[in-house]
């Protein structure tokens, strides 16, 4: 399975000379296996995603949730404007609004000039919750995780590797922080012993103290979590838009120098390509 990181920034795209190393596009990752691609999240990183085979009819996009930084690239993804394409969009269920009505809020004026119903491609919507489903060679588990609004994380099993994707997650929410008991950890089953976990690490511990309840993790919490769930490798993502490359490098150096465990961790960078399995 090949993991390609297309967007790593949280909240808002952050372009400029200060973010060229890690990247300024918001959440998007592609996975490839046996020539089949799935796309995770439709942040601004989606704009530059190209299909491995232009002739392929079906494209699958899995959305963790509907915050703008995870969907703002959808309207700029060229296959949506191709009448020969069948775009399958998977997103978290809500008992009050279906997937169509929530997507339509964004893909319609005044936020977007083209109505969803006027897009030339065929759109097929799939509600997910605590679900399991298959797309080509991928077996996917979705589960609700702690983040404001309906939000899921994904566990994707390919032929010989497991990738876990939980880019927006605050598992330490509460007076005691992380509870180190697998029954009480949001998303535990998604992440358990994954070969690679891409997880929210927006804040430093100091910043997190001022932003409890915003739905994101400190990098230190994410590292502790990854160690507890036994992943082989952790990539921290959803970088704070206020963190320049210089700042992120400083933070990473400090984390590495303080860390005494065996976990292989790093900050996700736009353009990273990782072969798993």
């Amino acid at each position: 399975m090949k993991v390609s990181v297309q967007g790593v920034r949280g909240s808002i795209p952050t372009s400029g000379s200060q973010t060229t190393q890690f990247g300024g596009n918001t959440s998007c990752v592609t996975l490839m296996e046996d020539g089949r691609m799935i796309i995770l999240d439709g942040g601004s990183g989606l704009q530059k995603v190209t299909l491995p085979d232009p002739e392929v009819k079906r494209v699958d996009i899995l959305l963790t949730h509907f915050h703008l930084d995870h969907i703002q690239g959808l309207g700029f993804f060229s296959p949506l404007f191709d009448p020969d394409k069948e775009i399958h969009i998977w997103g978290p269920s809500s008992i009050t609004h279906n997937l169509h009505s929530r997507l339509n809020r964004f893909l319609s004026p005044p936020l977007f000039p083209v109505l969803m119903r006027d897009l030339p491609c065929e759109i097929v919507l799939h509600d997910v919750s605590n679900s399991s489903f298959e797309i080509g060679p991928f077996t996917i588990t979705s589960q609700f995780v702690i983040h404001p609004g309906a939000t899921v994380g994904f566990r994707i099993k390919g032929k010989s590797a497991v990738f876990a994707y939980v880019p927006d997650h605050e598992p330490a929410l509460g007076p005691k922080g992380l509870i180190f008991d697998k029954k009480w950890i949001s998303g535990f089953e998604l992440m358990e012993e994954a070969d690679l976990l891409l997880h929210d690490g927006q804040f430093t511990t100091e910043q997190y103290g001022k932003k409890i309840g915003w739905g994101h993790s400190s990098m230190e919490d994410a590292i502790q979590l990854a160690e507890y769930v036994g992943v082989k490798r952790l990539l921290l993502t959803h970088h704070d838009p206020a963190h320049s490359d210089t700042k992120l490098n400083e933070i990473l150096d400090a984390l590495k120098s303080k860390h005494t465990g065996q976990l292989d961790f790093d900050l996700a960078r736009e353009g990273m390509e990782i072969e798993l399995g």
């Binding site: 609700f144 702690i146 509460g174 007076p175 697998k182 029954k183 009480w184 949001s186």
Partner: peptide, 13 residues
């Protein structure tokens, strides 16, 4: 046993 649903976890918190 499986992990509790987040609604249970948040009630505990």
């Amino acid at each position: 046993m499986a992990t509790y649903d987040i609604e249970i976890i948040l009630n505990r918190q």
